[in-house]
Computed example of a mutant assay.
Amino acid sequence: MRSLLVLGLTVLGFQFGCGAGEADPGMQSDLTSREDSLVRCIADYYITYYSDATYTTAVGSERCTCNRTPTRTGVQTDFAVENYYEECL
């Protein structure tokens, strides 16, 4: 009787240890319940993004104020001008 109990517990241990208790791998994770830490600005700056290398048409911007989350509008491109930059105290 004792050996049957030990065998049953061993099988049960292998099932849980080998992933028998895992969720369906085909299910996608629910990102609505995910909590990421917010990005905080460590500098005070303003960047303007332009559509091309002529720097004539602004298409986006990024504003960061010390210890707050950055505010972005429009599109970020490789053609950017940093209007001002000051480190937070």
Rank of each mutant, 00 (worst) to 15 (best):
G19Q: 04
S51F: 07
E62A: 07
V59F: 09
L5W: 10
D44M: 05
E86M: 10
Y55R: 02
A58W: 00
S61Q: 05
C88G: 10
G17P: 00
A53S: 15
A20D: 06
G21A: 14
E86K: 15
G17Q: 06
V39N: 08
Y55I: 04
L5G: 04
R68I: 03
L38C: 10
G60L: 04
F79S: 01
A58V: 11
V39P: 02
L38R: 14
P25W: 01
V6K: 12
D24G: 01
T56I: 07
Q15S: 12
L89D: 15
C41V: 10
P70D: 06
L38W: 06
Q15R: 11
C88Q: 08
T10Q: 05
V81K: 15
A53V: 05
S61M: 01
V59S: 04
G19Y: 01
M1I: 11
L31R: 10
E87F: 12
D36L: 14
T69R: 08
G26E: 11
D78W: 03
E82W: 02
D30A: 07
A80P: 03
T56E: 10
D30H: 10
M27R: 13
G74F: 07
Q76E: 12
T48A: 13
I47D: 07
D78P: 04
S29N: 11
D52F: 11
E62V: 04
A53K: 13
D78F: 03
L31M: 06
D78A: 14
L12S: 12
S29R: 14
D44V: 02
G74W: 13
T32E: 13
T57E: 13
Y55P: 02
Y45F: 15
V6C: 12
T32C: 06
F16R: 07
G74D: 09
E35D: 09
T48V: 15
